[in-house]
Design a protein around this nucleic acid. Structure first.
Length: 284
DNA sequence: GCGAATGTTCGCTT
DNA sequence: CAAGCGAACATTCG
């Protein structure tokens, strides 16, 4: 489900509702989704801790605790975070449940639930001051919405790479948070052919790319906006198939700009949709 | 039954 | 040694 815009949406929906709540109990039903430390230590250390706030970095979510311990979460392909009343029906594939004390009786309390069909998602718990050599969050590159993000940055890091520009956009150590959906959307907006070797882009193209990245990412954060009620009703799944996507999943349909039929190809092992007219394979 | 799916990492080959 | 590539992880859906 989750690239940067989706993860940001989850953060914005859930964060205001869990600030200041205490974790009464942690139930790990699938120990393998807790990557560090061992599940029993994970539960034991978290029990009784109070949530300070939640942040996002790339596709990671971070739940900061008052102790300065922090929970790191990555949803990978199908992970989902849902805040629900304790008596709300449990999703299939729910692997970790945090029972939160909201001052109500236990049966009316809230639960923060992590579910994940394919079980690729992972959680980590780092102690106060403990450096995170486990999750990969420390290896992330610039945030697309950071003011440091610019064409010069992209050209400096990617300008000599031979691999496809689309693969470069997916490199989390360069730009944090872009995945297969939004790399296609970004390249369409920038008018760049996905398989173009990065080292063949000229400065004007780096500029178009650097402009399209924050523009598309903020646009999709905006159109993904959802109320907590809607989010719960749709079980955190609904905004996945956004009607606002211009090319991803639209193979064979007309290009929104020129009407030509959109094509699909495989780039770096990932399905990629593009417009053969608006994204010509011209190595300028 | 087969292939592909929003992600990342590992291991083997070049 | 680095880059590149496929496999692996596990499940669902068309």
């Amino acid at each position: 489900m989750p690239e940067l815009p989706e993860v940001e949406t989850i953060k914005r929906v859930i964060e205001p509702q869990i600030q200041g709540l205490m974790i009464d109990k942690v139930n790990v039903k699938r120990p393998e989704v807790v990557a560090y430390p061992a599940a029993d230590e994970f539960c034991g250390r978290l029990t009784g801790q109070t949530i300070s706030h939640m942040t996002r970095r790339g596709k990671f979510l971070v739940i900061q605790l008052n102790s300065n311990d922090r929970i790191i979460l990555h949803l990978r392909m199908t992970g989902c975070l849902l805040l629900a009343p304790a008596d709300y029906p449990e999703e299939k594939h729910t692997h970790v449940i945090f029972r939160l004390n909201n001052g109500m009786e236990q049966e009316c309390s809230l639960e923060l639930r992590f579910s994940d069909t394919r079980r690729f998602g992972r959680l980590w718990l780092l102690k106060n001051g403990e450096s995170d050599t486990y999750s990969g969050i420390e290896k992330l590159g610039t945030e697309p919405l950071d003011k440091l993000f610019a064409a010069e940055y992209l050209k400096a890091l990617l300008g000599k790479r031979k691999k496809a520009v689309k693969e470069c956009l997916l490199d989390q150590s360069v730009i944090a948070g872009i995945g297969n959906i939004y790399s296609d959307e970004i390249l369409f907006t920038a008018g760049i052919y996905p398989a173009r070797p990065a080292n063949s882009l000229n400065m004007e193209e780096w500029e178009r790319l650097a402009a399209a990245i924050p523009e598309r990412i903020s646009y999709f954060i905006e159109v993904n906006k959802i109320t907590p009620e809607e989010y719960l009703e749709t079980k955190g799944q609904d905004y996945r198939n956004t009607p606002f996507l211009q090319v991803y999943g639209q193979e064979g349909k007309p290009c929104p700009k020129c009407g030509e039929m959109l094509c699909r190809m495989v780039v770096g092992g990932r399905g990629s949709v593009y417009c053969p007219v608006c994204q010509k394979n011209s190595e300028a």
